[in-house]
């Protein structure tokens, strides 16, 4: 190593270090360069299409199970029964946000647009069970029983209307069948 190279090394080390230190000093001194967002007090404005936690408007949900089918991770579980007016009635609609991957596929396919991403993102919880969102507060079994009762009543009513023309033993059999159907609708639990 020649002397020139040796001195060059030293000079280069000093100048490049000084250059770098000038930049860090500028950041250190200039308060405008600070980009910190003091989170609990200041918040980042969430853009319109943000894919936060899912929310299902159960009033407009038709229980078509499109979301369940499209979900790649099975985080949506849905139970429904056929109501008296032939429409599906939601018995339970749970989303496991601890398993959800927030891909938004379910929102895209939802026909009545009842399933939507909210802008919520904070839901730290102390128990794993808390991560399952229940959108229907009522117990699924109760709903099912109620709907089954309604169906049975409707069936009985329809049968009663029919019974006006038909023989009596037939109508009693129909009623029994309706009751059986109601019993089948009972939850497994």
């Amino acid at each position: 190593m020649g002397l020139k190279e040796y001195m060059n090394d030293i000079v280069e080390a000093v100048t490049t270090t000084a250059k770098g230190m000038r930049i860090t000093a500028r950041y250190g001194v200039d308060p405008k360069e600070e980009v910190t967002l003091q989170y609990p007090e200041e918040r980042w404005e969430i853009p319109a299409g943000y894919r936060g936690f899912l929310n299902n408007d159960v009033k407009t949900c038709t229980a078509c199970t499109m979301c369940v089918k499209v979900c790649p991770v099975d985080c949506i579980s849905l139970e429904s029964v056929r109501g008296a007016d032939k429409k599906m009635v939601l018995a339970s609609y749970d989303i496991n946000i601890g398993r959800c991957m927030y891909c938004g596929l379910c929102v895209e396919v939802c026909p009545p647009k009842s399933l939507k991403h909210t802008s919520g993102y904070e839901m730290a919880s102390v128990a794993r069970g808390e991560l399952i969102l229940h959108f229907i507060a009522e117990d699924a079994a109760e709903i099912k029983a109620r709907v089954a009762r309604q169906v049975a009543e409707a069936a009985v009513k329809a049968e009663a209307a029919k019974a006006a023309d038909l023989s009596s033993d037939l109508s009693s059999e129909a009623a029994r069948a309706a009751k059986e159907e109601a019993a089948k609708g009972e939850p497994k639990k």
Binding site: A13, T16, T17, K19, G20, I23
Partner: peptide
């Protein structure tokens, strides 16, 4: 300037 051409 900050790091790429820093001697070290």
């Amino acid at each position: 300037n900050l790091i790429s051409y820093n001697k070290i």
